[in-house]
């Protein structure tokens, strides 16, 4: 039998989690306890035999959170504060990543790009913001070029104020860190989630790594139509 590669396991886990949670709508706020502090047990590490990968949106307790009070410097807009609120009747996609990430980040940004393509003209109402979790290596220019190459017009958010970055991360339920080993190598980790925010500044969707562009597009459209 074929080797079981990690992504299949993870996606399968997500599929099983979805079945277990029994959701039908992808971006509806769910009644998972929002009062508890971040608990990784609700994420998607589930081992199971591979099956088909129908729906890969995951549901986490961050859905329903209000992030409208937060902002980060937008280096694609002279460092002005960027608030996590979509434009009126729009949707905002937010991603935490870093530019030297060769695998997960480009995959997610490319999937988002594909999803925006599926939206046609409605993509004009979707704003994209990527937050670098590695401001030491990602200069303002580097992160701005990166997001603009994947999706022109996107916003690159960067701060060297680690507390401010963490505050935003906590609000989204995003965890990340970059460490440098004694031999000069960098080790980075991050939650691989893409977030969909509506025009009230409420998180309406959390897509985990590997979410199909079709699913992302459908959820974005639901946010646009809400």
């Amino acid at each position: 039998m074929p080797y079981r590669h990690p992504r299949s396991l993870r996606l399968t886990g997500i599929a099983i989690l979805l079945v277990a949670v029994g959701i039908s709508g992808c971006v509806q706020p769910v009644s998972i306890d929002t009062s508890v502090p971040d608990d990784p047990s609700t994420t998607t590490t589930v081992s199971a035999p591979p099956t088909s990968l129908a729906t890969t949106t995951t549901v986490r307790r961050e859905v329903g959170r209000d992030v409208s009070d937060l902002s980060l410097p937008d280096v694609t807009n002279a460092g002005d504060p960027f608030r996590f609120v979509a434009e009126d009747d729009g949707a905002l996609a937010v991603y935490f990543g870093y530019t030297t990430c060769p695998d997960v980040c480009p995959t997610t940004m490319a999937d988002l790009r594909t999803a925006m393509g599926l939206l046609g003209d409605d993509a004009e109402r979707v704003t994209v913001a990527m937050i670098t979790v590695d401001p030491e290596r990602d200069s303002a220019e580097v992160i701005a070029d990166y997001v603009g190459w994947f999706i022109p017009g996107s916003h690159a958010l960067r701060t060297e104020d680690s507390e401010r970055l963490e505050t935003v991360g906590d609000a989204f339920g995003a965890d990340f860190g970059v460490t440098k080993t004694p031999n000069g190598r960098y080790i980075a980790f991050h939650t691989p989630f893409l977030y969909g925010v509506d025009d009230t500044g409420t998180i309406q969707a959390v897509w985990t790594f590997g979410a199909e562009p079709e699913v992302i597009a459908a959820d974005l459209r639901r946010i646009l139509d809400s």
Partner: peptide, 14 residues
């Protein structure tokens, strides 16, 4: 040769 792995909801590469 690298592998991306997921631990406690975060992904890293080694």
């Amino acid at each position: 040769i690298h592998e991306t792995t997921e631990t406690d909801g975060t992904m890293s590469m080694a």
